[in-house]
Design a protein around this nucleic acid. Structure first.
Lengths: 337, 337
DNA sequence: TTTCATATGTCAACCGGATGACATACAATT
DNA sequence: AATTGTATGTCATCCGGTTGACATATGAAA
C-alpha cells in the first residue's frame, strides 16, 4: 500500500522540495541525503530508510539539471531524422529511444524534415543542451557542422562528415538480392526507381547493385528518380515510356506501393505481368501491405549497433570504433514477385 | 563566408568555452557577454559585434543546463506514447515536436510500449529532468501519478486523471459517420471491431456511436474485440461465425487492413460483397493503402490544440483551459465501400 | 585499552550562467 | 554647469546538487 500524498504531508511552501527539505524531514544532514542518493560512503540501514521515506513523503525528485551541471554529463542524446511519421524512421527511432533508455540515456527528438536550416538549428540546440551524443540520419550532403570536437556523433545510413561512424544495412547486397530475384523470376525489362540522388548516402549502393546485377545478367539497367511530390507523375511516365516493363525494384516500400497502385489502374496483373519488389520491410508496411515483396532492413539491429558505437565513444573508447558498419538484410518474398 | 574553425582559433584547453572565455576574447566583462546573450540593459553596437565574433571564434554555445537551473525553466516537454513506430503516433509525435520546436520547446521522447511500469518510470524521469510540461497518450487506465501539482499535463485521446485536459478527435461523430456510410451503402450485417476495451478512453465512443447508429437503423450491433497479437485469429473467427457479414467498421486502419486481407483469402469481393471502413487515415495508410475508406483524424490539429493548451498552462493561464476538446473528423470514401 | 571500520555532521568550493546593486565614464541636453 | 541617458565594469548571490576535507561518535575487534 503506497502512501497517499495528502496536503498535510506536502511541504508548506508550494515549491519543489530540495535536498535540504528532505534532510530536514528525515532529520539528517543534506550531505547524508546526497550520500543515500548516490550510494556513496557509509550509510546506515535505518538512515537510508528514513531518507527514502522522507523523499516519498515530500514527493521529492532529485533535480537532474543541477546534477548534470556539476557532473558535466546529461545522459541526453539528440536524435535527428527527417520525420517520425515515416514508417522506417518511426520504427528506427522507436528502437533507438528504447535501447538508449535501457542504458540510462534520454532522447531529445528532432524532426528535421529534410531541411538543412532546421538541421543546423537542431545541432545548435543540442549543443546548448549539452547532449552527450548525437545520432543523425537527416540529410544527404556532408555538413561540416557535424565535425564537433569531443561530441560523439553516429550516422544512420548517412555520411555526416569525414570521421563520423555510419551504420546502415547492407544496401549493396539488398540491391543485388532484389534485382537478382526479379531476374530469376524471368523478368527482362526491370526498372529501378530511387529517391532523390545524393551520391553520398550508402542507400545509393542499392542502385549501384541493381546496375551491376543487370549487367551481369546481360540486361540494360534503367533508373527513374523520384522526388517527394512527383512520385505519381513519374511512375505514370515510367509506364507510359516502358510498356514492356515486367519488373520494378523500388528503393523503398512506399514507392513500390505506388507502382502497385498504378499497375492496378492500368489493369496490369501482378505478379503475372509485372513483378514488384520494395525496400525497407517495416512493421507497418508488413501489416498494411503484406503482399509486397521487399528487402527488409534489420532496423532493431541498426539501432542497437548505433547506440553501441555512440556510447562507446561517449565513454571514450575511441579505439575500436568502426567507421562503417553494415548489417545483413532479409529478402521477404511475398505475392508481388 | 563563414569563418572556418581552425585549431589556432580554438581555445587552448580542450574544454568547452564558457562566458568568461568569451569575455576574455572579446575584451569585455562576463556581465557584458551575458547582457548581449539576453539582450538586457544597454549594449553598444560595436560591443555586441565584438562579443558575437568572439562567440563564433570560440565556437561558444551557451550552457542551457546552467541557464535552466537559474531561471527555473527548461523549455523541455515530455512526450509519452506507446511507440513512434505506429503510423498514428508517429505522425502525431512528428507534429507535436514540430509545433513545440516552433515555440521554443524541446521534446523528450518516451515510448511506453503500453506498459504501465515503463510509463511510471518515464514520469519520474521527466520530473527529475524538470520538464515544463507533459503530453501523454500512453495508457488506458487513469493513473494518479499524473496528478502532479504544478506540472502541466495534457492527454491525447486518453483520460489521464480527474483534472487533466484531453484533446481528441470527435470519436462519436466518426463512429456515426462510418457506420452510417455502411448502412447507406446497403449493408445489413455490419460488424465492428475494436482494440482492447478500456472504458475510459474517448476512442470508445466510436463503438458507442456504432451501436447507437445500428439501433437507429433497426440493425443489431455486433462487436469483436482484438488484442495486440490475436488480430488475425479473431478476424478469421469473425468471418467463420458471420458468413453473411457485408460491412465491417474497424476501429483503426491496421485492423481494417487485416480484414481486407482475410476477405481476399476467402475470395470475398470488395466492395461488392463486403464493405470495409477503417479509422485514423494517417499519411502512411493513405500512401500504402489508398483504396481503404476511412475516418481521418485531424492529427495536426490535435497536435496544435494539445500544445496550445499545454503552453497555456505552463504560462499559468489556467483560467480558460478547456477540460475536453474534440476536433472534427473527415470521412474519406475510397474503394472499399 | 587501543584501534579501526562504520556512520554522520559541518563546511566550503564548484558546475555555468543570471541578475541586482552599485560605481564609473562619457556624451548629449537643458 | 548640472542633468540625464547610454554604456560598461565589479562584485556578490543564487539556482540545486556533488564532492572532498575534516571532525566526531559509536561499537566491535584486537
Amino acid at each position: 500500500m503506497k502512501p497517499r500524498i495528502t496536503d498535510s504531508t506536502k511541504n508548506a511552501s508550494n515549491t519543489k522540495p530540495k535536498i535540504a527539505d528532505v534532510a530536514k524531514v528525515a532529520g539528517v544532514s543534506p550531505t547524508t541525503v546526497s550520500r543515500v542518493l548516490n550510494n556513496r560512503g557509509y550509510i546506515g540501514e535505518k538512515t537510508r530508510t528514513k531518507v527514502q521515506q522522507a523523499m516519498e513523503q515530500l514527493n521529492y525528485f532529485p533535480n537532474d539539471i543541477a546534477r548534470s551541471l556539476f557532473i558535466q554529463k546529461t545522459y541526453l542524446i539528440g536524435v535527428i531524422f527527417p520525420t517520425t511519421s515515416n514508417p522506417f524512421y518511426g520504427q528506427l527511432i522507436f528502437h533507438l529511444e528504447n535501447i538508449a533508455a535501457s542504458m540510462g540515456y534520454k532522447t531529445l527528438l528532432c524532426n528535421s524534415q529534410g531541411r538543412e536550416d532546421k538541421e543546423k538549428n537542431y545541432l545548435k540546440m543540442l549543443q546548448r543542451n549539452q547532449v552527450d551524443g548525437i545520432i543523425a540520419g537527416a540529410h544527404n550532403r556532408r555538413m561540416e557542422e557535424y565535425d564537433i570536437p569531443s561530441l560523439p556523433v553516429v550516422g544512420v545510413d548517412r555520411y555526416l562528415s569525414e570521421n563520423t561512424p555510419v551504420v546502415s544495412s547492407d544496401n549493396y547486397d539488398g540491391g543485388t538480392q532484389a534485382t537478382q530475384l526479379l531476374v530469376n523470376k524471368g523478368c527482362k525489362h526491370i526498372i529501378h526507381i530511387n529517391g532523390p540522388i545524393s551520391l553520398e548516402t550508402p542507400a545509393n549502393l542499392r542502385r549501384k547493385a541493381y546496375e551491376d546485377t543487370m549487367r551481369e545478367n546481360d540486361l540494360t539497367p534503367h533508373t527513374y528518380e523520384v522526388g517527394l511530390d512527383d512520385q505519381e507523375k513519374i511512375i505514370e511516365k515510367l509506364f507510359d515510356e516502358n510498356p514492356r516493363v515486367d519488373g520494378v525494384f523500388a528503393s523503398d516500400d512506399i514507392i513500390a506501393s505506388r507502382v502497385l497502385r498504378e499497375a492496378k489502374n492500368r489493369n496490369i496483373d501482378i505478379p503475372s505481368k509485372l513483378k514488384v519488389i520494395g525496400y525497407d520491410g517495416t512493421e507497418t508496411t508488413r501489416l498494411l501491405l503484406p503482399e509486397l515483396s521487399t528487402i527488409q532492413q534489420p532496423i532493431k539491429e541498426i539501432a542497437e549497433k548505433t547506440i553501441e558505437i555512440l556510447i562507446k565513444q561517449i565513454n571514450g573508447d575511441n579505439g575500436d570504433v568502426q567507421l562503417e558498419t553494415m548489417l545483413p538484410v532479409t529478402l521477404i518474398e511475398s505475392e508481388t514477385t
